[in-house]
Design a protein around this nucleic acid. Structure first.
Length: 425
RNA sequence: GGAGAGAUGGCCGAGUUGGUCGAAGGCGCUCGACUCGAAAUCGAGUGGGCUGUAAAAAACAGCCUCCAGGGUUCGAAUCCCUGUCUCUCCGCCA
């Protein structure tokens, strides 16, 4: 959510920023509503002041046993008038809130201006692409042949876009997750949280998935609960409605969780394999920091995510998303894309965003620089570190051998009981 | 799921026959005095949001805020309704 004062005073600037994002929003009503609200507030506050002072007087008179009937009658009218005006103000405020809550974040000045993903800017490339001397297979074929992922039975048990990991596949899933967690906890300074996988709508508004993107979520019937689409939601909201101590910032949390996405509107995309699932696991990184340090923290977070791929020795590139490709809450986002031979291209495996104070304002997360200072909104960041399913796909494809087996990356072996290879039975 | 109790400021905790209650008292914290310094003691201060004076800061004034949302009333922390959460007991369960 934008600061209402900022919007009021930088109206044209905001409109331009939204145009760059391709967000077609009409803000025309805003200024009028805003002005009207303040006019009405002055009016009603004056009346409330009168009511407060006179009511106090009535109390005093009654204590002395003096009849205050005239004053009470007068106040009846005042109270009615107040009720009427209060309703009007409330209605206006709802309209203003409706507008504010649907405005996406303003892109940072270092974000390239562009209409869509074709105008994203590659900022880094790492690693050598595998030079196969045989025809590499896509991960779903490798996995089925090794009997480590079962697509068919998941379809039977649940439906499309679900899988069972099986045997060494299931172990690999745990290994990848534990490797990532240990790295972030022990070397990058993150404190692990195991979050609820179900959150209420308020939390989803806090991080920006609601109210605009409800169709992407799984909602639990007849409740206010949703399955989380990412651990970013519970972890960011962990500090909602709190005022943090400035000395404790920056705060780093990581969380391993399942994520649930309806994938509405992506029918037909990535239908094979484990790239696009309704349920997948992910290690998420979330940071809370002071405004002046958030961009430096974003760079560090990207490095933390990159480190996972470097240690796994998987080739990747880093992309600076352009204005037209930014997510709703993000002011700046780097995507990390891993090399996937079956796609003959790079595929997103992490997305690291600085949301500045956009989520903090929605979720009301503040901090005090010193015990005497006024509260300020923190900046929040989030990034995948990494998506586990896509990492497994990348490992299977990049580490496949001519005989159909898959070598296990060095750093994962301790997590696989020392195993160095997954072979056919 | 059934029965009961509760939710007050950073924390503890008064206030529940409605009327100077934004809220006693204590702790904590900040500043000052005392001290070579510290402790102890004494004094002062100490929530948040919104609006106006104003374009902004300091300041001042007003409004809102005692879990949330409604209601009764001239007036609600106090009364009524709904919801959320916490605790105790019973049942069930990993």
């Amino acid at each position: 959510m934008l600061d209402i004062k900022y919007l009021r005073n930088n109206f044209e600037k905001v409109k331009e920023a939204l145009r760059n994002r391709g967000a077609d929003l009409s803000l025309d009503d805003f200024l009028k509503l805003d002005e009207n609200r303040r006019k009405k507030l002055v009016e009603v506050e004056k009346l409330k002041n009168k009511r407060n002072t006179v009511s106090e007087e009535i109390g005093k008179l009654k204590k002395q046993g003096i009849d205050a009937k005239d004053l009470i009658d007068e106040m009846k009218n005042v109270s009615e008038e107040i009720k009427k005006l209060d309703d009007e103000v409330k209605q206006i405020e709802e309209q203003i809130h409706e507008i504010l809550i649907n405005i996406p974040n303003i892109p940072h000045k270092t974000v390239p201006i562009g209409a869509d993903e074709t105008q994203n800017v590659e900022v880094k490339k790492w690693g050598d692409l595998p030079g196969f001397k045989f025809k590499p297979k896509p991960h779903w074929e490798i996995a089925e042949e090794l009997d480590i992922i079962d697509f068919k039975r998941a379809g039977k048990v649940t439906g499309s876009r679900f899988v069972f990991y099986k045997g060494l596949g299931a172990m690999l899933e745990r290994a990848v997750a534990n490797f990532m967690l240990d790295l972030h906890i022990k070397e990058h300074g993150y404190v692990e949280l195991t979050p609820p996988l179900i959150v209420n709508s308020n939390s989803l508004v806090g991080t920006g998935q609601l109210p605009k993107f409800e169709e992407d979520l799984f909602k639990l019937k007849d409740t206010d609960y949703y399955l989380i689409p990412t651990a970013e939601v519970p972890v960011t909201n962990y500090y909602s409605n709190e005022i943090l101590n400035g000395d404790d910032l920056p705060i780093y949390h990581c969380a391993y969780s399942a994520c649930f996405r309806s994938e509405a509107g992506s029918a037909g995309r990535d239908t094979r394999g484990i790239i696009r699932q309704h349920q997948f696991t992910k290690v998420e990184m979330v940071k809370f920091c002071k405004p002046e340090e958030s961009y430096q923290e974003l760079e560090k977070m990207v490095q933390n995510a990159e480190r996972v791929l470097q240690l796994l020795e998987l080739p990747y590139r880093v992309i600076n998303l352009c204005t037209g490709d930014l997510g709703f809450s993000a002011a700046k986002t780097y995507d990390i894309e891993v090399w996937l031979p079956s796609y003959d291209s790079y595929k997103e495996i992490s997305s690291c965003s600085n949301c500045e104070d956009f989520q903090a304002r929605r979720a009301n997360i503040r901090f005090r620089r010193t015990s005497k200072s006024k509260p300020e909104f923190v900046h929040t960041l989030n990034g995948s570190g990494l998506a586990v399913g896509r990492t497994i796909a990348a490992v299977l494809e990049n580490y496949q051998q001519p005989d159909g087996s898959v070598a296990i990356p060095e750093v994962l072996r301790p997590y696989m009981g020392g195993l160095n290879k997954i072979t056919k039975k």
